[in-house]
Amino acid sequence: MADQPAVAAPRRVLALGATSAIAEATLRLLAEQHAAFFLVGRNTQRLAAVRNDLLTRGATAATTFTADLDNTAAHPAMLAHAATALGGIDLAFLAHGVLGDQSEAEKNYAAAEAILRTNFLSAVSLVTWLASYFESERRGAIAVISSVAGDRGRKSNYVYGASKGGLDIFLDGVRNRIDRAGVHVLTIKPGFVATPMTAHLPKNALFAEPARVAKHIVRAIEKRKDVAYVPPFWALIMLVVRNIPRRIFKKMNM
């Protein structure tokens, strides 16, 4: 069975984008520690499969809720419903996101806006509600999957990068506001992970399996980290990338 956690494992978990491969792998580890789940995603059949898997692995309860998270107007009611259904939330985990089509987004603002809406605006809306909820509870944790892509604007994916970079700054600010209320805000920055989102990319040695990334995510939650590069070697890679002088970076083909 799983190792003893450093901090008591979260017992009531709200997962947004629960059908994401990284989310699933992470939720499996929490299920083994007998968490209860409220699972939100936009595909009902997929949610049912995730739910059955988590229950089989040891989840004490799992409720599913079908919603397109782009619809921010529906967020407050949905989140209030989740909090009631779970009898209180210990951990809110945001995993939904889209890679989008960079070349399309370069030509067509609507495509760029769609990426920003899903990756940034929907997260801002969710975290706004959750921050106040946890602040008044004076406990709890918000863990959000951002990306190493948010560290620097690259010519090959800067719209996606901007959505994640904006998310990073937003989460920094929220952390600075509610940390003092005892609320943990975790920014998760994965490198390349082999998931449906990257299925079309040729794989190389930098790609990690979701199960491996999940272990690091759970550890970061238990250790109450502020920012976690996962797997951790990405912290080093991004330290280098962030320090490449702009006059050189702009000539590079990244």
């Binding site: 889209v98 989008g100 089509d101 960079q102 449906p196 989102m197 990319l201 040729p202």
Partner: peptide, 13 residues
């Protein structure tokens, strides 16, 4: 670059 398309040119052997 959508996630569910079945574009498969560069997939490995």
């Amino acid at each position: 670059m959508g996630k569910s398309d079945s574009k498969t040119e560069q997939t490995p052997q």
